[in-house]
């Protein structure tokens, strides 16, 4: 199972990004192989439609869960129809490392 985590940087020491569409990096974490992929978000400076474009990006990676601080109104229904689970985690100080530890429990 693949999980997307929004991150402020490209290391596991970075913190969780509170935005989904305009986060700095997406981290695609595979819970089976424990592999990680860092993708810089191309939509960070988009005027509008950053959310749907980001959904397209992570959905193309075969993600089934997304962890972020907040999801915009446009993408909730989109993710619903794609059967991707949204996890809202409002802890801006949490590091990616800690979240991955939680997922491995």
């Amino acid at each position: 199972m693949k999980v997307a985590i929004t991150s402020t940087g490209n290391t596991i020491e970075s913190k969780l990004d509170q935005r989904f569409g305009r986060c700095a990096y997406f981290i695609i974490y595979d819970t089976k192989t424990k592999g990680m992929e860092f993708i810089p978000n191309p939509n960070i400076d988009a005027q509008e439609g950053a959310g749907p474009a980001s959904v397209q990006l992570v959905a193309s990676k075969g993600v089934t869960q997304i962890i972020s601080g907040e999801f915009g109104i446009k993408i909730k229904s989109l993710l619903d129809s794609l059967k991707i689970q949204m996890i809202i985690y409002k802890e801006p100080s949490k590091r990616i490392k800690e979240i991955i530890e939680m997922l491995n429990h």
């Binding site: 869960q65 962890i67 229904s77 991707i84 689970q85 996890i87 809202i88 802890e91 979240i99 939680m102």
Partner: peptide, 29 residues
């Protein structure tokens, strides 16, 4: 469209249930 939303009391996260036919028993996090 709206799916059911849940909150976890131990890690205080919110999550929805995209597999609407199945019940969620654990916090995904």
């Amino acid at each position: 469209f709206d799916s059911e939303w849940f909150s976890c009391s131990s890690c205080r996260c919110f999550f929805n249930n995209p597999e609407k036919q199945e019940d969620i028993k654990n916090c995904p996090l």
